[in-house]
Write a protein that binds this DNA or RNA. Sequence first.
DNA 1: GCCCGCCGTTCCGTTAAACGAAACGCATGG
DNA 2: CCATGCGTTTCGTTTAACGGAACGGCGGGC
Lengths: 264, 264
Amino acid sequence: MNRVLSLPAEIPEIAGETSSTLKAFGVLEVLVRAGRAVTLSELMQATDLPKPTLHRTLTLFEEAGFLAREPGGRAFIIGERLSRFALDVLRSDAAAAQRRTILRALVSEITETCNLAVLKKGTLVYLDRVEAPWPLRLHMAEGGGGLPPHCCASGKLLLAHLPPPERQGLLGLLPLERFTERTITDRAVLESELDRIVSVGYAVDNEEYVLGVACVAVPVRSRDGDVIASLAVQGATARLPLMRAIEFIPRLRAAAAEIGSTFG
Amino acid sequence: MNRVLSLPAEIPEIAGETSSTLKAFGVLEVLVRAGRAVTLSELMQATDLPKPTLHRTLTLFEEAGFLAREPGGRAFIIGERLSRFALDVLRSDAAAAQRRTILRALVSEITETCNLAVLKKGTLVYLDRVEAPWPLRLHMAEGGGGLPPHCCASGKLLLAHLPPPERQGLLGLLPLERFTERTITDRAVLESELDRIVSVGYAVDNEEYVLGVACVAVPVRSRDGDVIASLAVQGATARLPLMRAIEFIPRLRAAAAEIGSTFG
DNA sequence: GCCCGCCGTTCCGTTAAACGAAACGCATGG
DNA sequence: CCATGCGTTTCGTTTAACGGAACGGCGGGC
């Protein structure tokens, strides 16, 4: 009974977390992913948390009904309350489900990877992303931070549609780091590019972030017409030269309109 | 926009809780049960927690990926990480042991493969599955993604019992990909099929996904009558022609009732 | 335009909860 | 009988959570 519990890589370093709440949540994630009753010492190995801390956390959850003890044992299992909580979470996912479905339909039609992104704290983050069934995939560094907005189609699109004051503010602060020889690193050039984007209604990234990768992005608008997100198609230029990507724009716009209607 | 958020009675007095972690969980429970984007001030009413405490808690969860902001707004919605967590919980639940026992009993009685499934993000995913001891087994692509809901009995059953707005939303968006000559690919046909499913109380899949495989699914209901999952029997038509599968419905219903009572 | 009120956000001095090394209890088994 | 491994409890220290108060931005009313 000396089984080792592996800590999935996606769960970020629990012991390094300062907040007791997030630590506790991390413990639950590990426990839940084990798929079986888990003992305190197994969790010690998996989380690197000190024994008393774990014990306190676990018994707290036990008393609150989120966890329970394995009948006849000391190991912890999922409690009634956590089970119900999880069900409620999945139930209220409905809106996200709709969006994902729209994305999937779009991807299966044009067979290229598409994503839905928003600007968060000055960087671009994905809300959702559906990969096309091609072997050559690129993995944008997701996870914690986002992508620099000045060199991808979605980022430029969202920058372009910011209210003028924020747009100016961000423009003055963005590092405009260079990634390829096509990356726009000049503030004035970027600004006129943004103006152009607003007038034509879409944005392109012609290998400005990664060589050999092109993107086209169109705005997703809320019911009252505000641009709230960006819908983009991306692909290797070998398969998806920019000209071909641009032909997808009408289809992208249709999907963007559908997605827009799922918000608010 | 002066909606009031009701605090379900089962969530015990969040403000009186001493542990910050349990307070945080209580907030999540309220948020998740609202079933829509929720603002800070709504949560203030519902939880009686002071504004800064709530703000701290919510932004903490946001930074950790458990929550996200409604695009274009300030309200909070369920984040990617929480969604995944919920799925993991339901997969390895304590009551899961109980459910698995019920499933096993069912399978050993009718000697055909049975499964328990829910709808997540517009696709069908298995909570549990017990194989019958026959050599001819089919392995549905488990793992990451799920099954298309329009062509399997469980999927159609769960679609049929969605609240009308979500049902319409999904129906309009599902690709309705064809897998066999019996797959329903026409929206109107599918819709009337769903209506029929609601009225007769079960769904069938007559080789609509895989040739030679038939399924029958019945709803699993929570204590208050909501359809929360689907219990289905599946098998090769050589052994399990649809007519025989339909004869199992009373037995399936009995098991579904037992399983339903293991949820909250 | 101007003010007012609402809401989200930030500040900061206070307080109490979280922390974890160490010790304890209690099995098991060598 | 002691050695070992695990769960549990203790307690002095530390640090994160707390929340009243003030701030700032937005929108509605006048």
